[in-house]
Amino acid sequence: MIDKSRNKKAKRKIWIESTLVFFVAISPFIYKIYDYLPENPEATISFLGMTIDNNGFPDVSFYVWFLLSKFIPLYLLIFWFLTSKNWWYHIILIPIAMYAFQLFEVIFDADDNIDTENIWWLLPICMVVIPFVYFIRIKLYDRYVHGIDLEAMEAELHSLKQKRLKQQNAEVKKTDLPKVEYRSLSEWLNEELSTQKLAQRFKKIKKGLKAIAFFKF
């Protein structure tokens, strides 16, 4: 069963990677599609049930060329982001967002100006991605250049805190126990035969004798 599941995973991985390689390999040919489109300003084309016109450009060929100049880098960057194993691969999200916003602006914006204000849409993404990548860079630099392992330091600090808590709990338990005083025989005799103890006992005996004599008479 384990071998079958491994074989399925391996086949699926090979199939996905082969698909990615195929689209990367044909990207130059996809980009050259605009050469085969009509340059007539009034011409339109149908693709997957959609009608594409010039959308404000001189002709359909010009419009498709502009779209493909954004779309081809976009999906290549997405493939790079999905397959990259470098520590800084999150920074690829910034150019991905840039091309995505540019495509959105060209297709859906009614303004005649293009590639103008979409740079401002990237600021929130940059404010999140750049500090995140810089933080990873600092951790790696401290670990492999300065030899500072932050995770090991955190684990050590955690263990020290646990030891300190155990010591505090032990001290609290010790203070809660009743104190038992141990005395030697000599100390007990000294205390019992002290003048104060003897005087107290003689007083009790005297009071007892007086009470007996008063009762007889």
Rank of each mutant, 00 (worst) to 15 (best):
K70L: 07
W87G: 00
N86S: 10
F66W: 04
I92L: 15
S84R: 07
I72R: 13
N86M: 03
W87Y: 03
F62L: 03
L74M: 13
F81L: 15
I72F: 11
W65F: 07
I91H: 09
Y89A: 13
H90V: 00
I78Q: 05
L76T: 01
F62N: 10
F81T: 07
W88I: 11
L68G: 06
W88A: 14
L76R: 00
T83S: 14
F81I: 12
W88D: 15
V64W: 02
P73E: 05
I78L: 15
S84H: 04
Y63Q: 00
S61R: 00
H90Y: 12
L93W: 14
W65C: 14
I92Q: 08
P73Y: 06
L93A: 09
L67T: 05
I72Y: 10
F79C: 03
I78H: 10
L74C: 13
I91F: 14
F79G: 02
S69D: 03
V64D: 00
W65P: 04
S61A: 00
K85E: 09
L82E: 08
P73M: 11
I91A: 15
N86Y: 07
W88L: 11
S69T: 01
H90K: 14
S84K: 05
Y89V: 12
L77F: 04
I72A: 10
W80F: 09
L67W: 01
L67I: 07
L74K: 06
S69A: 06
K70I: 03
L67E: 13
L82M: 14
L93Q: 11
S84A: 15
L68D: 02
K85M: 11
P73T: 10
